[in-house]
Design a protein around this nucleic acid. Structure first.
Length: 510
RNA sequence: GGCUCCGUAGCUCAAUUGGCAGAGCAGUUGACUCUUAAUCAAUUGGUUGCAGGUUCGAGUCCUGCCGGGGUCACCA
């Protein structure tokens, strides 16, 4: 239940006073002929055509927006209103507006944060700012709660300098609308986010991929190692999982005859929250027939370079203290070489888990006891290599026992054709030459069940229907998955995933 | 989940060893017909996250809880 504070109480009373004077604080009908930027452009064009002192009347406009600055003087006032395009100044003079309306402004019945509609001829003030000489002024939405206040200055090129800030992280995330309304730079992050997703789509569409949608509610989860969220369908009396990946549903479509499919959508993983993990996040997965993980690496490089260029105008992107370069030709380093290089240990000298674990302890790291060989290799990688991979890098050829959907590397029983790519010390994506032998796939499911018996977190449920699909024949294909949010972090120079999510997950307030 | 730091006015922040809770901005009132981080004068505003405890006295010290940041763990 809303308990108006003092400032809100004042605004409520203003709304009532306006209503008493016959002003509707929330009218149904609104008009706008120009955005703020269109209006400015229209005046500049007028000046260019007729000169600054011309007797030809300037264009008449109707603009709408939120009041961001008010400067009331005795008989002339100024406001800046803001719409999505930017800001424009209103020049309000009692002569044009009449006493009644001007008095409402002077009595500050109109507040910063209110939405208004203003009509009039465009002009330039003596100080040189393009403004609307307002002859009709209407409140179109009263703001009852003041937005967090920070002082801002609009420079001539339109940039907004902020003095002070609205920085309380918790409030910013919980009340993102206020964050967006006040903090100008936050809005641009989400514009770039949209541009990023659009660029990914355009890239894949142009390559001939078909965008599809697969179930989020799944009777069986799979395709990744993660704990799922569970839910329940009341009518069907059915336990359901929120998907942790799209993998198995997408590959079934290759059986159905599509050569190349992709999906961009939400995944849900019931795991820890961190600067790069949110319980729900946006994933891109694609699968392409008649290629393998080498082909997928080429697509990956091209795609990321394309996105960087579309969003930031260059394959080079500033991220924190680094300049990342997505230009294709990223290094491809095997998992084995990477660990040899950064950890000074060759895990192939220790082909069984017990020996490897002991060798790792001698190196001074402490994996959980009793893990599989592949898990140990992965631990080594995380401990010694991951953070060091700043420029885009493919790490290729992963241990088999942590990769149940990838084809083995020729004549190598320990490795599969899989790569992950890393940027800024973060895992960005994961891909393999997809396993398409149903007999091998079934064995992998069984092996996983055996390896991770009693280990709920890493168990991979056996998906009979997926095997059935594969038995009809699945073309050889390469598959790919990438966290879109992390990509957006890179494109927008944000340190945490929460700053690229409009509504990051927050604990419930009790 | 562990460790650690933090929570004071609408926003950003002060408050000495435990000693009257403050400032700037915004808000309110007034002046001002080209201002723009407007200016000038006056002025309001607090359950110091919540609940206990120690003390003559707690924003400050202690315990618990709530929320958040960082970090570790978890996480292909």
């Amino acid at each position: 239940m809303w308990q108006p504070n003092k400032l809100e109480q004042e605004r409520l009373e203003k709304a009532q006073r306006l209503e008493a004077a016959g002003v509707k604080p929330y009218p149904a009908r609104v008009q706008r002929t120009h955005t703020a930027v269109q209006a400015s452009a229209a005046y500049e064009l007028h000046e260019a055509q007729h000169g600054p002192e011309s007797s030809v009347p300037a264009p008449e406009v109707i603009v709408c927006g939120r009041i961001r600055r008010v400067n009331v003087k005795g008989k002339v006032s100024f406001m800046h209103i803001e719409d999505e395009s930017g800001r424009i100044q209103l020049f309000l003079r009692v002569n044009e507006l009449g006493d009644a309306v001007y008095t409402q402004i002077k009595d500050s019945l109109i507040d910063t944060d209110d939405f208004v509609q203003a009509a009039g001829e465009l002009m330039r003030t003596k100080a040189g700012e393009i403004s609307v000489r307002v002859n009709a002024f209407h409140l179109i939405a009263k703001s009852l709660s003041p937005l967090p206040f920070i002082r801002q200055q609009v420079l001539e090129d339109g940039t907004i300098v902020e003095y002070g800030e609205f920085s309380d992280v918790e409030t910013r995330y919980r009340q993102r609308y206020a964050d967006l309304a006040v903090n100008h730079s936050v809005r641009s992050v989400f514009v770039k986010r949209a541009q990023t997703v659009r660029a990914v789509r355009r890239f894949l569409d142009e390559l001939g991929f078909l965008e599809v949608e697969t179930p989020i509610l799944q009777p069986l989860y799979g395709g990744a190692a993660a704990r799922p969220f569970t839910t329940y369908h009341n009518e069907l009396k059915q336990e359901l999982y929120l998907r942790i990946s799209f993998e198995l549903y997408l590959k079934r479509l290759l059986v159905g005859g599509y050569d190349a499919v992709y999906e961009i959508g939400r995944d849900f993983r019931n795991e820890g929250v961190s600067y790069k993990n949110n319980p729900e996040f946006t994933m891109l997965e694609f699968y392409k027939a008649y290629t393998d993980y080498r082909g997928v690496m080429e697509i990956t490089e091209q795609m990321l370079a394309y996105v960087a260029k579309e969003v930031n105008g260059s394959t080079q992107v500033k991220y924190q203290e680094h300049v990342l370069d997505f230009k294709p030709g990223w290094p491809r380093i095997t998992m084995r070489d990477a660990i040899r290089q950064f950890a000074a240990i060759d895990y192939m000298d220790y082909p069984d888990a017990g020996a490897l674990e002991k060798a790792m302890r001698d190196l001074g790291v402490n994996p959980k006891p009793g893990q599989t060989w592949g898990k140990l290799v992965e631990f080594l990688f995380g401990e010694f290599v991951e953070k060091k991979l700043i420029q885009p890098t493919f790490i290729i050829d992963f241990p088999r026992d942590i990769s149940p959907f990838a084809k083995r590397v020729n004549d190598d029983t320990l490795h599969v054709e899989r790569f992950e790519f890393y940027v800024a010390g973060m895992e960005m994506g994961n891909a393999f030459t997809e396993l398409n032998d149903p007999r091998d796939q079934e064995q992998r499911f069984l092996d996983m069940a055996k390896l991770y018996a009693g280990d709920d977190e890493d168990a991979v449920p056996l998906d009979e229907d997926y095997l059935r699909a594969m038995r009809f024949g699945m073309p050889p294909n390469g598959g790919f998955g990438m966290g879109i949010d992390r990509l957006v972090m890179l494109m927008t120079d944000q340190r945490t995933i929460r700053d690229v999510l409009l509504y990051p997950h927050m604990r419930d307030l009790k």
